[in-house]
Nucleic acid binder design. Structure first.
Length: 258
DNA sequence: AAGAACACCAACCGCCGTTAC
DNA sequence: GGTAACGGCGGTTGGTGTTCT
């Protein structure tokens, strides 16, 4: 596939790009995306690489439909936090913010249609019956817009914590929230569901796809790798040995992918 | 069987916060 | 302290698969 050197690729990822990205994330860790984008030879932006990794390639991601437990959890958490998708996603291991966002969007659209049908009799065609996106019509939980906006602004403006330890205070309140909503059972269910995932090597993908670096199978190894490599004088030093990796990669995985 | 409508998913864009220089 | 670069997040859009008529 020929791409102009300076032209950034967009659109769907190919299998080969996926493999290449996984390999380089295995080598350098899942940070420094611009760097990975450059050295990997993928004509993608760092953002694009990160998104692909986070939403699709990351080991441990779940596939398939949301379970009823997860759906309930999303609803509960959304009622608390609004559209804080990444935060909600952290409470659903294996689910991405994008996935939850998509789910919610579909879910709300469905609910909106149901509500529209219920509220608007065939004869009365009020043009003002627009749906309020802040209404959580599931189980009758209504969400005043002020609640969502309030919660959001609190986080966005750093009122909850301006010292960078937002996660700590957030987690604490999250647990309180969980208790308050009697979600212990949900958590147990999810924990049970997670046993399969957590019992295996989380970063198995890194090992499988980077046979030339078998010692990087565990996250700790990745961190070690990252810490060491980040000190390299970036581009110049890397140029010396990256071609080898690329050649190796192609020779191992480049067959039959086009 | 064909077309329309719907549902789902992947990816991009713009903004904002953080970090490094 | 100011600024640029980067990473992360939420919003949005377009494509594809599935279901319905």
């Amino acid at each position: 596939m020929m791409v102009a050197p300076d032209e950034t690729r967009k659109g769907p990822w190919t299998e080969q790009e996926d493999l290449q990205l996984m390999c380089f994330v295995g080598l350098f860790g899942d940070r420094r995306w611009d760097f990975i984008a450059k050295v990997s030879g993928l004509n993608r932006t760092g953002k694009s690489c990160r998104l692909r990794w986070v939403n699709y390639l990351h080991p441990g991601l779940k596939r398939g439909r949301m379970t009823p437990q997860e759906e309930r959890l999303v609803l509960e958490l959304h009622s608390q936090w609004g559209n804080r998708w990444s935060r909600i996603a952290r409470r659903l291991p294996g689910r991405t913010d994008n996935e939850i966002k998509n789910y919610w969007r579909t879910h709300m659209r469905k609910k909106a249609q149901e509500r529209k049908r219920a509220l608007s009799p065939p004869s009365s065609s009020s043009s003002t019956n627009s749906f309020s996106p802040t209404l959580d019509s599931t189980s009758g939980v209504s969400l005043p817009e002020s609640q969502i906006m309030e919660g959001r602004s609190l986080h966005d403006k750093g009122v909850i914590s301006t010292t960078g330890d937002l996660d700590v205070s957030g987690d604490r309140s999250e647990e309180e929230v969980a208790k308050g909503y009697s979600m212990d059972q949900i958590w147990k269910d999810i924990a049970l569901m997670q046993e399969d995932v957590s019992s295996g090597p989380v970063y198995e993908g890194g090992l499988i796809l980077c046979p030339q670096t078998p010692s990087m199978a565990s996250p700790s190894c990745w961190n070690y790798c990252s810490d060491a490599l980040w000190r390299m004088d970036d581009q110049e030093d890397l140029k010396m040995w990256l071609p080898t990796i690329n050649d190796h990669f192609v020779s191992n995985y480049g067959h039959g992918l086009e």
